[in-house]
Amino acid sequence: MLWFIGRRLLQMIPVFFGATFLIYFMVFALPGDPILALFGEKTPSPAVVEQLRAQYHLDQPFIVQYLLYLKSLVTFDLGNSFSGRPIADVMAKAFPVTLRLATLAVLFEAVAGITVGLISGLRKGKFFDSSALVVSLLLISIPTFVIGFVLQYVFAVQLGWTKATVGPQAGWSELVLPAIVLASVSFAYIIRLTRTSISENMGADYVRTASSKGLTRGRVVRVHVLRNSLIPVVTFIGADFGALMVGAIVTEGIFNIPGVGGTVFQAIKQGQGPTVVSFVAVFVIIFMVANLLVDLLYAVLDPRIRYAN
């Protein structure tokens, strides 16, 4: 087990460098001059431009820029964004907000999705199941921003249960509605995944054997059906956590949340290589850690994986 974790951690190193290199290169290759863009309509003096270029190493060839950036990354001194704020500060402000949002979203999709999927799977073909299928199909086919605006209008504007937009602090309670919007599509997928998995497992031989042993139906479902059915669902949720963080940009826009999405979007538009790559680096780490956790959880749920060499 330790060997397994160690190997997985070692595997992260090349992935990390590969991903940051690619992103850095892509931002570098973006058209437009980031320094000139800073000044907007005004025409800066060439001396100022030169000085800014030197400050951000933009006068160096690409590979030198990247290596210098790596050095700053390793020394945890990420430097300043082009607007002069330390990148570390920008990240410290944006990441916790999006992390809270994504955590709430994952909790919602896991709890609600598995519950609905379980009931659907047990009552396949009945009214509840059919309704759940229709609703999940709707959620999958309607774009997030439509769902976002509708829920915002109904719950915030009409009913007044929550605020329509999120304040600069972006506390847990303010983020509940945005989290539901963010999770809506995944929620639908989890319903379907759980439903299929449950109804498939209900027909498994060992489930019939469990019933033949005299166990109650409740226990058969809890102990022998649910756990086995959760294996694919857990994989999905783990992979989805990273996707939710990156994909939060639309939801953050609708609810005016000061999260990662907006910040990165601005940075890409302005060609701020170091800022973009710093955020992406964190994304990469989050993705990899989430995947590792999924694999470990997988081993907990399924002993065949735990003991396979």
Binding site: S212, G214, V223, R304
Partner: peptide, 23 residues
């Protein structure tokens, strides 16, 4: 449910698929 297991035992066909792999 009360009869199954206690009064009527059952031995299924395929030993490979009749034990729950995760317990």
């Amino acid at each position: 449910e009360d009869v199954r297991g206690r009064l009527i035992g059952f031995v299924p066909q395929d030993p490979m698929s009749n034990l729950n792999p995760v317990w």
